[in-house]
Design a protein around this nucleic acid. Structure first.
Length: 233
DNA sequence: TCATTAAATTGTT
DNA sequence: AACAATTTAATGA
């Protein structure tokens, strides 16, 4: 699993010396499901890579209610925002299931940031992709139905710029999907059932098979079956 | 390998 | 939100 580290997209264009230092200083650890990798409110000390598994980024308010902002699947990297700003982690990072996690120290990240142009290109593309991800979610949330919202959230978990989707099987409970979309579990459940009937996903116990990512994405932007609303203007 | 139990997840009201 | 039903995982014979 250590090998996966240098197979990351940002590592492909580093020179041998840079690759060597990255490999030496980055630790690769296995975490059981539910582990807090980055606690909220502590200084950010690592850039976090999901070599295998899945994590969520969320925050818990005082009254115990929590919201999930993003899910990151195998091949994704996160946490660069807090590193660049040298700030306390505004959100916590938690594994949703057993995962292999890479932790690159701040110093190593900063060194790559200062010395590698390809690394900077990667960061710009990643930040841009994240922005697009959030815009798509907000759009589906404001304009479309909850079902479209779920469609976009699930589709975005497969965003090729943000992860290296190796499989179309998503091991995640409907409850976590609901958190990810900011919906109640029953609404998310209904939405997932609709998407299943539309032939876009296939539900099993604890897993979701994504059959057509492209159509899922399209669903979030007006391809919804309710065209009585969309057609009028 | 099979039966029993606990835990997690889903389905329904 | 609470409850019931279902599936999986773990345990032990």
């Amino acid at each position: 699993m250590q090998d996966r580290l240098l197979e990351s997209p940002w590592a492909l264009h580093l020179d041998p010396a840079q690759r060597a230092r990255v490999e030496q200083e980055t630790q690769v650890l296995k975490y059981p499901a539910g582990s807090v990798i980055c606690p909220e409110g502590v200084p950010a000390q690592h850039w976090v890579g999901v070599l295998d598994g899945m994590v969520k980024v969320d925050t818990v308010s005082a009254d115990g209610r929590g919201t999930t902002f993003i899910g990151v699947t195998t091949g994704g990297w996160l946490g660069e925002g807090s590193l660049l700003k040298r700030e306390l982690r505004p959100y916590e990072v938690v594994t949703l299931r057993e995962s292999w996690i890479a932790l690159m120290p701040l110093a190593t990240f900063e060194w790559l940031f200062q010395t590698s142009l390809p690394f900077n290109h990667f960061l710009v593309r990643q930040l841009n992709a994240r922005l697009g991800q959030f815009v798509a979610v907000v759009e589906s949330c404001r304009i479309q139905s909850p079902t479209a919202q779920v469609a976009v959230c699930v589709a975005e978990l497969f965003n090729p710029t943000l992860c290296s989707a190796t499989s179309d099987v998503l091991r995640i409970s409907q409850e976590e999907i609901a958190r990810l979309c900011g919906l109640s579990r029953q609404i998310a459940h209904r939405a997932l059932h609709e998407l299943e009937q539309a032939g876009l996903v296939k539900m099993k116990y604890g897993t979701i098979h994504v059959l057509d990512v492209d159509r899922l994405h399209a669903f979030g932007r007006g391809m919804a079956p309710v065209e009585g609303v969309a057609g009028r203007s």
